[in-house]
Design a protein around this nucleic acid. Structure first.
Ligand SMILES: [Mn+2]
Ligand SMILES: [Mn+2]
Ligand SMILES: [Mn+2]
Ligand SMILES: [Mn+2]
Lengths: 233, 233
DNA sequence: AAAAATTTTTAGACAACACTAAAAAATTTG
DNA sequence: CAAATTTTTTAGTGTTGTCTAAAAATTTTT
């Protein structure tokens, strides 16, 4: 009887799309700040207010999805991380679908995937995965977690870490906004493009680069910081 | 100034998935009862309580999506009907996707489509439509409204309207539940199957039928009433 | 280490939706 | 047509998630 009570406690652990978005945001921010994630940073990531976040992390903590101590930030529990990884898997697989099958541009898919990632079905995602041929990366170069939430941790090298004269291949982007991605489209930069650093200006940290051995142009540090690369040779 | 006010009034007419489901339910029920749709019937269709429906139709009426007079039932306005038809278009296109592309059975798709139909994106559905080759019917034989909400009104003939000796082709089903559809699967009945009425039992209105010129079996009136057919010859 | 600035939490409201119980209206029945 | 039954609405609550304003804690500055 007492055992029963224990077992069935917390069994109704189905998430709303809101709680899924919170867990995803905390997961993303955990990769950046290694300590507990700050209330303000979650609020900014989700375009909401700190007071709303404060309320929510308290509730997530009751559900044992996060560890939260007042004034000391939030970290995911194993359970919370599992849920976040499942949502990220769904988000990235749907993004592949939108680009590969429906022919959307990589700059148009984020908002749609933000909705599709919350569709609940035990079978749907694995069927989608198979339909897409078990892709390993999404259209932005991000790795897709497998059924068990595992994916290779690729050390991300940013374009602004290169020295003058070095060459690299674009392997991913750290920013999914339409503004950023359609700018890359207009300059002809896509995953796999080659980038050579021609010059570096100390004043504003901007870079003069040559892309695809053709056009010369200048990247601000902010742009360069959102371009993930792997060094050539 | 006054004009401005008028124009921008009611401009924020974005629906929640709840209101979309209400509008869809009212549309479906309007086809059956030609008068105003009763509060109780909406409640039953949506598995909710009459008091909740009473609240909601009042709100939908304020948004000019339904006409509602206390104690006299609810009907869709033109605007409400347009929204309902868009949701139905999305539901049926996603069902085609799930069966044709992801290889789901027709008995597994209803609940998933019930979620997918609420995804908001101006471009998504037309791209999906193109990807699927502009299908005209969903996996249950229901017509798919076009971009403008138009679809042919097919007069539905039900199996229990046939006389002994008549033959027909299964063109659709009026019931989407897994229980019903997987029963049809086990007896090998699918869209396009031929059905011949061998006998009719007055007592319970059940029918003895031969399907695909092979097996003989008996259908209750309830089953026969959910099988849509077109007469052969 | 006190003052100032920033971050975080609490308090109090609100909107959307759902529910139960009870009241009111409409319909069916005898 | 009055009584009984059914349908519908209202009243009062609860839950989830959001917000603003104000209080409290923490961190930074001087
Ligand atoms: Mn989302
Ligand atoms: Mn992505
Ligand atoms: Mn739905
Ligand atoms: Mn259908």
């Amino acid at each position: 009887m007492c055992l029963n009570f224990y077992i069935y406690t917390n069994t109704d652990n189905m998430q709303t799309s809101t709680t899924e978005d919170y867990l995803k945001a905390i997961f993303k921010l955990s990769g950046i700040y290694k300590k507990g994630v700050s209330t303000n940073s979650i609020a900014e990531e989700l375009s909401t207010k700190a007071s709303s976040v404060s309320d929510m992390v308290k509730k997530l903590s009751e559900k044992k999805l996060v560890d939260y101590v007042k004034y000391q930030g939030t970290t995911l529990t194993k359970e919370g991380e599992n849920i976040a990884l499942k949502v990220i898997r769904k988000h990235r697989l749907w993004e592949v679908f939108l680009v590969e099958k429906l022919k959307f541009g990589w700059d148009e898919i984020h908002e749609i995937a933000e909705q599709l990632e919350h569709i609940k079905s035990p079978k749907l995602i694995d069927k989608l995965d198979a339909h897409l041929g078990f892709p390993k990366k999404d259209p932005h170069g991000d790795p897709i977690p497998d059924k068990n939430g595992l994916f290779p941790t690729i050390k991300k090298l940013k374009l602004n870490e290169l020295k003058i004269g070095e060459k690299a291949i674009l392997t991913g982007v750290s920013e999914d906004s339409k503004d950023f991605l359609s700018y890359l489209d207009t300059i002809g930069l896509k995953l796999g493009s080659s980038i050579e650093v021609l010059d570096y200006f100390k004043f504003d940290k901007s870079l003069k680069v040559k892309i695809n051995n053709r056009s010369d142009l200048t990247f601000s540090d902010l742009v360069a910081n959102n371009l993930n690369i792997s060094k050539e040779n």
